[in-house]
């Protein structure tokens, strides 16, 4: 996921001239987060209403309840967006965050505007307008996000690297200077990633599909790397390739690269 999908995200260039990708969150996650927030909000409003009924005379209680609902309905989101770096409890739960379109925290006016436009996004029922716009927008923004130039981004959690790939295969007849040099020149970063993913997911594939896919990929790289003398099965070929691509030791020794 992450970077590959993030091609569709918005790129912010920091003053350090590093590009940071803001990866938009999808409709599903956003909806779930909203649901959690909604439940919390209703519970909170209910508790406050009960408390106000207990301690205040009836007329004032009605007024207080009205004000509470108003302040909660608007203030809940604004509070979390400003004070908790764009994460309401629901968003925190699903690893989402509201950020400014330039990757910075929300300014208070953005938060206000974003949440005022909610009045239109909820129409006609259950965020239908918001969801529709969200589906059509490349960055999955609802109208409030568009009006306030904000984005809801996904924050990937810590992922441990997979070591299975980097273990070298003991016998690898692909490890010859000619192949190593060709690999270096003819297999780009995306392809390396694709090959690695293919090996990692191979076990999950249906046996027939696995065989076909591996043979097809192997045939492609046999042609690309001009290897026709090594009689491997497709899968061994691909795994051998990945093993030299992701080995701890450099796949190409310096003396080859200098040549």
């Amino acid at each position: 996921m992450g970077e590959l999908n993030a091609r569709r995200g918005r790129v912010v260039v920091t003053p350090e001239h590093v590009e940071i990708v803001l990866e938009p969150a999808g409709l599903g996650n956003r909806f779930l987060a909203l649901l959690v927030d909604f439940v919390l909000l209703v519970a909170l409003a209910g508790v406050l209403a009960q408390i106000s009924l207990l301690f205040l005379p009836l007329g004032i209680a009605g007024l207080v309840r009205g004000l509470t609902l108003l302040v909660l309905g608007w203030g809940y989101h604004v509070y979390f967006e400003i004070q908790h770096q764009g994460q309401s409890p629901g968003k925190r739960l699903f690893g989402l965050r509201v950020v400014d379109g330039r990757g910075l925290p929300l300014a208070i006016e953005q938060s206000f505007i974003r949440n005022a436009v909610r009045a239109l996004d909820v129409l006609p029922l259950g965020y239908a307008v918001g969801a529709l716009i969200c589906l059509m927008d490349r960055e999955h923004r609802r109208l409030g996000d568009i009006a306030a130039d904000t984005l809801v981004v996904r924050e990937p959690r810590h992922v441990a690297g997979d070591r299975r790939l980097t273990r070298e295969r003991v016998f690898n007849s692909l490890r010859v200077p000619r192949v190593l040099r060709l690999v270096r020149h003819r297999v780009n970063l995306e392809e390396r990633e694709f090959l690695a993913t293919l090996c990692l997911r191979a076990d999950a594939l249906d046996a027939g599909a696995r065989l076909d896919l591996m043979e097809e990929v192997a045939a492609f790289y046999r042609r690309r790397l001009e290897i026709d003398d090594i009689p491997f099965s497709g899968e061994s070929f691909v795994r051998g390739l990945v093993s030299i691509l992701f080995a701890d030791r450099l796949p190409v020794q310096p003396r080859f690269s200098r040549s």
């Binding site: 992450g2 970077e3 993030a6 990937p156 690297g161 390396r192 990633e193």
Partner: peptide, 8 residues
């Protein structure tokens, strides 16, 4: 182009 590392 490791997606996990770059994403993190």
């Amino acid at each position: 182009a490791n997606a996990e590392l770059l994403g993190r």
